[in-house]
């Protein structure tokens, strides 16, 4: 169980409170990434966003799983084709959860790849592997995307792509947390997830 820690005025005190929240609330992030892996593998990686858009999400070749805390902490890193990530699935069956994962998110016209840390939600090595494209298949420049030309246009265009990825990622997390905090919904979700883990 975690409790809400009020923020105090001083930065150092706030930092201590945040460190505590990272430690105590890390399980939420790990459960989310584990849920996301399961969901992406059972629904063909298709998620529907609030605005009706369908997006594709796939876990890529690298995963880090963790169980326990402090001295009892155990980590396992797996890499390989996701279709045959049997060792990672076995690790789940032994009580481990996903701590770090590389994902690919696809909205059709844009494809991002990024590594997500479950405990802090830091985004590492975000790459736009396929940008917005014009009808003739060429990349749209910042001025064509409506951000003007030059350094400011390039910055705003890059930022718009980063922001879009972040918003979608947060929306997926909100999908999870609304299920996770609803006792009935979570019971059936947990049962199905546990079954998937057992059927490795």
């Amino acid at each position: 169980m975690i409790t809400d820690i009020p923020f105090k005025d001083e930065v150092d005190e706030a930092k201590e409170a945040i460190t505590e929240l990272i430690t105590e609330g890390a399980f939420i992030g790990k459960e989310f990434l584990t849920w996301l892996w399961w969901k992406s593998s059972i629904n063909g990686g298709v998620f529907t966003l609030k605005d009706g858009r369908s997006i594709g999400l796939h876990f890529l070749r690298r995963l880090v799983l963790e169980s326990g805390t402090k001295e009892a902490r155990e980590l396992i890193a797996c890499s390989g084709l996701m279709a045959s990530m049997k060792e990672a699935r076995v690790a789940l069956s032994m009580g481990k959860k996903v701590l770090k994962a590389r994902i690919e998110l696809n909205t059709g016209d844009i494809v991002w790849q990024a590594t997500i840390s479950a405990d802090t939600f830091d985004i590492s090595s975000l790459k736009i592997v396929k940008g917005r494209q014009a009808q003739d298949g060429s990349h749209i420049l910042s001025e064509d995307a409506g951000y003007g030309e030059g350094e400011k246009g390039r910055l705003l265009y890059s930022f718009s792509l980063i922001k879009e990825f972040t918003k979608i990622f947060y929306e997926l997390f909100f999908m999870f947390i609304s299920i996770r905090t609803n006792e009935q919904e979570w019971e059936s979700e947990k049962e199905a997830l546990s079954l998937w883990i057992k059927n490795v």
């Binding site: 609330g25 939420i28 459960e31 584990t34 032994m94 009580g95 959860k97 939600f121 997390f173 905090t181």
Partner: peptide, 25 residues
């Protein structure tokens, strides 16, 4: 924006007080 603060912004802190780490296996 760590998992806890992000979750709190969506559900409120009361909802989070009732959840604890889950065992899936």
């Amino acid at each position: 924006l760590i998992p806890y603060t992000l979750a709190k912004s969506e559900t409120g802190s009361e909802a989070l007080k009732n959840i604890s780490p889950e065992v899936f296996a």
